[in-house]
């Protein structure tokens, strides 16, 4: 496919892919972009300064530059979100394919487990898990992964069941293909597109859930800059320093918008049928 025709065909996807890349680059080059200003150490002389040329997003109680903290916050938010989505994608898909392929007792165990996880309202269990494991970014990821994998497992299972009994699979099995080969060669490729679309459209939502946990104090811990926990710190200064909660929130919002649009764009490319009625 030519470059030009791709851009013309999927302008939305290209624009938001570029924006997403820009956000990722900003996270990677946060130290360079911030000009070496530390996101953690501030000077009390600079405490609670409104946005100015020197501090475009203002400063917080500790005199830390909010712009720099938002930049560094992108590192934590993006990396933890990507890890989270990757974890639930891999675990969910793996278990779903196993359940769909083997059926019987394996299927029953995996799917009942999924039912149980789904029976809990997501964030409620995640809060409990994060709270009990102790507050950290890693535990927040575990907490949300625990309640989010069933969606992928169910999807992968239903996709595998669709092709499980088709002729070409039966033929491959009759000719003596080994199970791991069957899973890798036939089951995975048939589920991967739909699951990738799901994962891509989930990025935004997962980012918000992680931020919600941090906001409640169950995710990244201060003084580390994370958007959700920055909002939590900022809400005590709402009257005197509203910028403390405006910019980190805006950062979450913009990032989620970009990744949601990217996900929708990807879905339109990989699965044009689903475009209808959306």
């Amino acid at each position: 496919m030519e470059k030009k025709s791709f851009i013309r065909k999927y302008p939305v996807f290209v624009v938001f892919a570029v924006l997403a890349l820009l956000i990722i680059l900003m996270a990677i080059f946060a130290p360079q972009l911030s000009g070496g200003v530390s996101p953690i150490k501030g000077s009390l002389k600079e405490s609670i300064k409104p946005p100015s040329a020197e501090h475009p997003f203002g400063t917080d109680k500790m005199g830390r530059d909010i712009f720099v903290r938002v930049l560094y916050g992108a590192r934590i938010s993006l990396s933890s979100t990507f890890i989270l989505v990757a974890v639930i994608f891999v675990i969910g898909t793996f278990l779903g394919i196993l359940a769909g392929y083997f059926g019987g007792i394996v299927d029953a165990i995996i799917m009942r487990l999924a039912d149980m996880m789904i029976a809990f309202p997501g964030l409620v269990l995640a809060i409990a898990v994060a709270g009990i494991l102790g507050a950290s970014t890693q535990n927040a990821i575990i907490a949300i992964a625990v309640v989010s994998w069933p969606k992928y497992a169910r999807l992968a299972r239903s996709l595998v069941m669709k092709i499980r009994h088709t002729d070409f699979v039966a033929a491959a099995m009759v000719t003596g293909s080994k199970t791991p080969y069957m899973l890798w060669k036939y089951m995975l490729p048939n589920t991967i597109t739909t699951l990738v679309i799901t994962a891509a459209t989930d990025i935004g939502g997962m980012m918000m859930e992680l931020a919600a946990l941090s906001f409640l104090g169950f995710g990244a811990q201060p003084p580390n800059p994370e958007w959700g926990s920055m909002l939590n710190e900022g809400r005590n200064f709402m009257q005197s320093a509203p910028w403390l909660m405006i910019y980190p929130g805006l950062a979450i919002f913009v990032t989620v918008v970009v990744f949601n649009m990217l996900g929708d764009g990807l879905r339109d490319i990989l699965d044009p049928r689903s475009n209808e009625g959306r």
């Binding site: 919600a212 906001f215 909002l231 809400r235 918008v257 649009m261």
Partner: peptide, 17 residues
């Protein structure tokens, strides 16, 4: 679209503000 992309705790804070 914007509604699903905005974190509800931020909405709450903005409303308070």
């Amino acid at each position: 679209f914007f509604g699903v992309s905005i974190p509800n705790f931020w909405v709450g804070l903005l409303l308070i503000l």
